[in-house]
Design a protein around this nucleic acid. Structure first.
Length: 490
RNA sequence: CGGGGCGUGGCCUAGUCCGGUUACGGCGCCUGUUUUGGGAACAGGAGAUCGCAGGUUCGAAUCCUGCCGCCCCGACCA
């Protein structure tokens, strides 16, 4: 099995970059920092989107769409939020082009300058709250539970396909509530939705927690997150859910008539996951032979490959495979018969492995004669020959097994690389091997900054299930009430 | 924005130091034949304003000047 990929061991970063391109997920565009998501990659995103959207609907949310452009003045209304995003905003200053008087194509028409510049949304809180102001009059209008699927732009200096691009796709939920408790509950609920999605659909174990003040979303009182551990020992923030308090209500003057006739500011949340999940999915399961996809998100769960000599045999075997494919489809599976005569079977095997198709069924003349079929599973790279009759049930249970096995394997890896340390030396040693590190921290931003500067490790989160446990800060020795989770991160 | 590297058919690349006819090779693509149980072989074919603009020269991918773009490493971030 000759792989064209750089191995993970040789250069993890290079492996990732090559994998994304070779598995046909995405490519760099000519626009700096932006990517083209190719049909196969987009098919995975579409599945993620469909499942998440359903989960949002089940929790009472509806979709809407707000403008891509946000008047500059909106940004200055919520001060901390500005600080968070000001450095990476794209700004629209003009609305017209004209032919260059010197004949060099087109130039911006200097006479078409916008009176107020527009910001390409890096996130939509400001425009949404400016709109909600008019939608919310009374407690009867609450809770307001809205989500939008959109693209956003953050002018990043260093980009990587899926993990960090200047433009990316995401969903952002923005909700308004009567009470603080309700808003916190909402933020936590959506965090649970994300965690369920990550674990049950992506087969990616996550750590649920709350961010330290330093890592918190600009404008939030609390940022909850799910953190996942990648194969190279680095953590990846896979989703965030924010309790925004009344910060945006204050900034945009969003008040409602309370049950007792008073006026109060609403309580808010926002929450999002992005195409970054694609990066998480790739780095959680894939191997040196290419992408490995969990069946539940794979655009193709089963690929059927004929092996034949001559047109007559091809027709016969492809016919048999199509029969099986129909049976699999009837059972609700996503299936492809690869009957492309211009590629040989060996080439197809390698190609579908590179693309992470969970199960491959291959049938040759021997199988046809003997009523068998070869079943290969992508995750373990193992093959077996089984009776063709009853293949549907076999494949269905195999897909379930693969889905579970991927999760178990990732969970075991995450657990094995998680270390609990007591001293600074242990902490530094643990950083070298990678993984999550459970350590005491004195709770101050200064210490967190210091540790980040010295080691590049950040506090990923304070786990929601963290137990009270007195101890001493690994860096300063000052008292600590509980452990927090550190790691180097993407 | 600092430091480093690189721009040559769709992709990867030789040639650049030391200027010289028709720009090397591979992948991919097209046609045909033989093949087909793990990325096939052979034959033929198409495809390039050598990043852009000036300059030096009888002659520039190659030398000089200016510009543009991209990648890598840092500071910033989901």
């Amino acid at each position: 099995m000759a792989s064209k990929l750089t191995s993970r061991e040789a250069d993890y970063s290079k492996w990732y970059n090559e994998l994304v391109v070779q598995a046909d997920l995405a490519q760099h565009s000519d626009v700096k920092g932006c990517m083209v998501i190719k049909p196969y990659g987009f098919a995975i995103w579409e599945r993620m989107k469909a499942v998440l959207d359903e989960m949002f609907k089940e929790t009472g949310h509806v979709n809407a769409y707000f403008p891509l452009f946000i008047p500059k003045s909106y940004f200055s209304k919520e001060a901390s939020h500005v600080e968070g995003f000001a450095k990476e905003c794209a700004v629209v200053t003009h609305y017209r082009l004209m032919n260059d008087p010197d004949g060099n194509g087109v130039v911006v028409d200097p006479s078409a300058k916008l009176e107020e510049e527009l910001i390409v949304r890096p996130t939509s809180e400001t425009i949404i709250w400016n709109t909600y102001k008019n939608w919310i009059q009374s407690y009867r209008d609450l809770p307001l539970l809205i989500n939008q699927w959109a693209n956003v732009v953050r002018w990043e200096m260093r980009t990587r396909l899926f993990l960090r691009t200047s433009e990316f796709l995401w969903q952002e939920g923005h909700t308004a509530h009567e009470t603080s408790d309700e808003a916190v509950e909402e933020a936590r609920r959506m965090l649970d939705v994300y965690a369920d999605f990550a674990e049950q659909w992506m087969a990616m174990p996550v750590l649920k927690g709350v961010k330290s003040a330093n890592e918190r979303f600009a404008g939030a009182l609390d940022t909850y997150c799910i953190e996942a551990m990648m194969q190279d020992g680095k953590a990846l923030q896979a989703g965030t859910s924010h309790f925004l308090g009344q910060n945006f209500a204050k900034a945009f003057d969003v008040k409602f008539a309370t049950r007792d006739g008073g006026q109060e500011l609403v309580w808010a949340t926002s929450w999002g996951v992005s195409t970054r999940l694609m990066g998480a999915l790739i780095m959680t399961h894939s191997d040196d032979a290419g992408l490995v996809l969990p069946p539940k998100l794979a655009p193709i769960e089963v690929v059927l490959v004929p092996i034949y000599k001559g047109e007559e045999q091809m027709a016969e075997i492809v016919g048999a495979l199509k029969g099986i494919a129909d049976e699999l489809k009837a059972a609700g599976l996503r299936v492809k018969v690869d009957d492309d005569d211009s590629k040989r079977s060996g080439w197809k095997f390698a190609e579908h492995e590179l693309k992470g198709v969970p199960v491959r069924l291959a049938m040759g003349p021997r199988d046809l004669a003997g009523g068998t079929i070869e079943v290969a599973r992508r995750d373990t790279q193992t093959k077996s020959v089984v009776e063709a009759a009853g293949i549907t049930a076999h494949v269905k249970s195999l897909l379930d097994e693969i889905q579970q096995s991927l999760f178990d394997r990732a969970a075991q890896r995450t657990q094995e690389t998680t270390t609990r340390v007591e001293t600074w030396d242990e902490f530094n040693a643990a950083l070298e091997t990678g993984g999550f590190i459970e350590a005491h921290w004195d709770g101050t931003s200064e210490t967190e900054e210091l540790i980040k500067k010295e080691t590049k490790a950040t506090i990923r989160c304070i786990p929601l299930d963290a137990k009270d446990e007195p101890g001493a800060c690994i860096r300063t020795g000052a008292p600590s009430k509980q452990r927090v989770v550190f790691a180097r991160a993407y």
